[in-house]
Computed example of a mutant assay.
Amino acid sequence: MKRVLITGAAGFLGSHLCDRFIKEDCYVIGMDNLITGRIENIEHLFKEENFHFVNHDVSNYVHVPGELDYILHFASPASPIDYLKIPIQTLKVGSLGTHNLLGLAKAKGARMLIASTSEVYGDPLVHPQTEDYWGNVNPIGPRGVYDEAKRFQEAITMAYHRFHGVETRIVRIFNTYGPRMRLNDGRVLPAFIGQALRGEDLTVFGDGSQTRSFCYVDDLIEGIYRLLKSDYVEPMNIGNPDEISIADFAEEIIKLTGTDQKVIYQPLPQDDPMQRQPNIDRAKKILSWEPQVSRQEGLKITYDYFKSLPEEELYKKEHNNFDKFIVK
């Protein structure tokens, strides 16, 4: 039985990864400090004898007794509302946290996969984005705490691979959606659906011409699993290349929810990328992977999930756990 450590286990993607590896008959150690993760995302796994949860911040020394075969590092704030409120923690989990886990991987002889992001490309000058594009990032802008944490994470991961011979994998994740997203985490898809469910007008930042490409979570998890099992060590884009403008996406959500809200426009936040579309030729060739779930199908599942949440979730403005973690 393979033993797997998944950090950020109570988060959106981390919890789905826990599900997948339990189904693959692995022993899963889920680690999370719950600063942005939700214990509700993994409560259903507590009855599983092959699942163990550890409440721990990986920015501090990480000890896991026994053997480890795989480490998947998904601990990090991932939405602007999170990393703009806790910038120091965001930088630490990408740097100190990654360093700690790479050391653990080296000690255990484990293969480690890190969750990088399309944000390493910044506001791209190349479209669609290929893995050999180095990016256009403002390192001192508000978003730099997330973007540069991920870029450093990639750099130290490759250094451990080259210098210490650690088996490493790097996935660059593009916009992903599905059940267990936080409704009010600031990302465009849950923001639009939350506004629609509350009967509010949908807020588009900028003129709405900026684009995003949305990948359903099941497709993403499959791509990550295949990358982990592959022999490929360079960064790899995993996402859905089906691109749509934010303005058109807002209209799509209005049609999906059957509401009659208007779209209102607000100024574009600093350094908000104008284009997001992954080139997935590498994933197609090496992993024989490409998305299978259409946006229409995935949005219906996600909307039904959000509709099923308790009403108080609709009006929760931010995650309840922030204040005790703020470092002044």
Rank of each mutant, 00 (worst) to 15 (best):
R3V: 05
V4F: 04
T7D: 04
A10Y: 01
H16C: 04
L17H: 00
F21M: 01
Y27V: 07
I29Q: 11
T36Q: 02
E48S: 13
E48D: 15
H56G: 07
S59R: 14
S59T: 05
S59A: 12
Y61M: 07
V64S: 10
P77S: 00
S79T: 14
P80R: 07
D82N: 07
L84C: 03
Q89C: 11
T90M: 02
V93R: 10
S95C: 11
A107M: 07
A107Y: 05
T117Q: 00
T117G: 01
Y121N: 10
H127C: 10
Y133H: 04
G141Y: 07
A155D: 06
I156V: 12
M158E: 14
Y160Q: 10
H164R: 09
V171G: 13
I173Q: 08
L189K: 01
Q195T: 13
L197R: 12
R198Y: 06
V204R: 13
V204K: 15
G208W: 13
S209A: 14
Y216S: 02
D219A: 06
L228G: 00
P235T: 09
I238M: 11
I238T: 02
N240V: 03
D242A: 02
E243F: 02
I244C: 10
S245H: 00
I254P: 00
I254T: 07
G258Y: 11
T259K: 15
Q270K: 15
R276T: 15
L287G: 01
S288T: 01
P291M: 07
V293R: 02
L299C: 03
L309H: 07
P310I: 10
P310C: 13
E313F: 14
H319C: 12
N320H: 12
F325R: 02
I326A: 04
V327N: 08
